[in-house]
Design a protein around this nucleic acid. Structure first.
Lengths: 231, 231
DNA sequence: CGTCATATTGATGGGCATCAATATATGTGG
DNA sequence: CCACATATATTGATGCCCATCAATATGACG
């Protein structure tokens, strides 16, 4: 990617949009693009922090693995999103893993140290970073709430309703953008439970399912499930 | 509180420690102290954001209430901590409630708008804010992990082991700093479950209990419970 | 077409919430 | 200071949700 293209790419990220040209150019100077295949680790938990990342194409899953080998997905970052800012800027080592979930996944890596030094040159960097971190914080608060207050069914229903719908006519089609086991991990449930929920909803005429494509027949019903008002 | 005392208080908060004198003085100019009794609401979810807060004395519980009346405690902020920065600086309305849990609880309220305008005058403000928000983010990630990966018993055991111990001799005494129902809410469990867990541990000789004061007899055992290696 | 990952379906059980009843603590006004 | 009212805590009974273990089934891909 040439330099001009890199600047355009950076300016397209919410984190950097709104920054003046020369600041973006300065950021570009400490940035390089990296390409990963599906399944490739971008960040390994415990490694020294070197950079944070913006997603140009593809998507990344951020997850923590605990001592007993279990994984907890914290976040899925698609095109246009940034991730690992907080860690890169304030911690010695990454506290989580990041893995590419599509091929190819193109990232821009912004080196931590040079970026930190830019803080002084343009206050807008601090401001935009604060906004980004705050948004992440709120998203996590939402996750905490979901985990502790909502049933597995409600979480799945929400996830389905949040998917971009390809409404054909008056019908409502959506497609799960990842393997079902990954969706399950994302929701903090097991693949078995996910399978059973979808089966039940099919039997009750709430939706039809074909692989990862599904048609929502009764969106109202699904919405009430999402509010935890009956499975 | 006179102006000099206010500045000293602010400088004692991690968010502002490390800032030059004149910056602290500028912050002090948009700050006022407020005192609350136990149970008084500091922030009401949905209200317009006016300020963020530092805790001078006492403590505050931050929680969300959902449509069905259930509460989820996100955070307990004791003396020296700040809270609501993210909301105050980036949102129109508070996304959570905050209630004083001690009498008296003394807070410093830093008005959002003037503070935001100070961003340009000193880059250190942005940097320190980024650090604070990052720390909060990591704490929340930890909470997510606990909620999804640890049993109620493990969470309670951790909470007990995290309490400041008043070790008398070679014995280990701790005191629960809030009502048990609040501790339960903090851990995302019901008071009944909390009560049963403590009862079981008493029966097994792990600890003894008298009101909110308890003596940990077998810290090793409790630590293994905290790691989810058996109830 | 065979191999491996992913998905489905069933059986089983445990953890923890819920509902309900009582006991204890806390605080208040007379 | 006591009696009462109210909040908090304990204990029991019950049941649901969802994880776990296990056994196919289906799909992806070289």
């Amino acid at each position: 990617m040439d330099d001009a293209a890199l600047r355009r790419t950076l300016a397209g990220l919410p984190l950097f949009s709104g920054l003046p040209q020369r600041t973006v150019a300065a950021v570009a100077a400490c940035t390089r693009t990296e390409t990963y295949d599906r399944g490739a680790l971008v960040i390994r938990q415990g490694e020294p922090c070197r950079a944070f990342f913006g997603v140009v194409a593809g998507a990344v899953r951020i997850y923590r693995s605990s001592a007993d080998g279990r994984e907890r997905t914290l976040h899925r970052a698609g095109a246009g999103r940034t991730f690992a800012e907080a860690a890169a800027l304030t911690l010695p080592r990454y506290p989580a893993n990041a893995v590419a979930v599509e091929s190819p996944t193109v990232l821009v890596a912004v080196a931590s140290d040079p970026f930190l030094r830019m803080f002084d040159s343009d206050p807008a960097i601090g401001r935009t970073l604060v906004a980004t971190l705050s948004a992440r914080l709120l998203q996590l608060v939402g996750l905490v709430e979901e985990l502790s207050a909502l049933s597995a069914g409600a979480r799945l229903a929400r996830a389905l309703l949040d998917l971009p719908s390809k409404g054909g006519g008056d019908r409502l089609f959506v497609e799960i953008p990842e393997a079902k086991k990954d969706l399950a991990a994302h929701l903090g449930i097991t693949p078995e439970t996910l399978s059973r929920l979808l089966r039940r909803w099919q039997d009750r005429g709430v939706l039809t399912l074909d692989g990862r494509k599904l048609e929502i027949l009764d969106a109202g019903r699904l919405a009430s499930i999402a509010d935890d008002a009956g499975s």
